[in-house]
Nucleic acid binder design. Structure first.
Lengths: 127, 127
DNA sequence: TCTTGACATAGAGTTTACTCTACATTGTAT
DNA sequence: ATACAATGTAGAGTAAACTCTATGTCAAGA
């Protein structure tokens, strides 16, 4: 299947402007038809979903761009790409661990609020 | 204990400029001494650590500012503040869940790379 | 044929969260 | 007393990641 930029935008949830911006940054390079319109493929779809994943896990556009360059260079860069992902996984693990700690503290804080509110309410009732 | 902005900066890991910026945004309002220098207290320290936690879990400065305003208004806003935190916890839980899914996909991708690299290497050896 | 809507490019503008600069003032060590 | 480091304010500058505007092209329906 091939998609116009409008269709691809709906498909991916990324704005048209964002897609063009990503292309400008060499993250993705869709084919063009005879009238110079962008033709996104299913391969592009898979690729952009992966880009979204990297972004959502905190990788910067600059880093993704680097990854995309390696990808464009083909097999010789397989190892380097894997290394990038392994490093990114490490960062992701740390991020998850940090958030889980924060979550515990937040739970505690909410519990504290629950008690405070109870205390204040009792005060009101007693007066 | 009281701290100068320099000491407080080292204590919190936030830059002096950032601390002043946070004050400008009304996130924190340290006392001033007779010569108009900022005097941060241990209460400020606890507060800024909480701010850092909110930030690290994805709350924007604008939202934190709102929370800070409620906090400054005292007991009458206890419930509203708790509600904010409960909502933020919800967002945090979703964020963690999303990252865990991404982690699984990333693991799979890395496994895929491991196989690809093995395949390519075998090709080289066989030639 | 004419108009409309999607698409094209180049470049400007926006938002967030800092980060830095310029310049004045003050506290401290020599 | 003097130099120097830390602090003060106001406002400009930066980086990232979009997001929008102006202007132009082109294919398809009324």
């Amino acid at each position: 299947m091939e998609y116009s930029i409008g269709d691809f935008s709906k498909l991916t949830g990324l704005g048209i402007h964002t897609l063009r911006y990503y292309e400008h940054e060499d993250l993705i390079t869709p084919e063009r038809n005879s009238s110079n319109r962008r033709c996104y493929s299913d391969k592009d779809l898979t690729w952009i979903e992966f880009i979204k994943r990297l972004k959502d896990t905190g990788m910067s556009i600059k880093e993704i761009k680097h990854y995309a360059e390696l990808r464009a260079a083909g097999d010789p860069t397989l190892f380097e790409r894997m290394e990038m992902l392994v490093q990114h996984r490490q960062a992701l693990n740390e991020q998850i661990a940090m958030l889980q700690e924060h979550k515990i503290k937040l739970d505690e804080k909410i519990e504290f609020y629950r008690n405070e509110i109870g205390r204040v309410n009792n005060g009101i009732i007693e007066n």
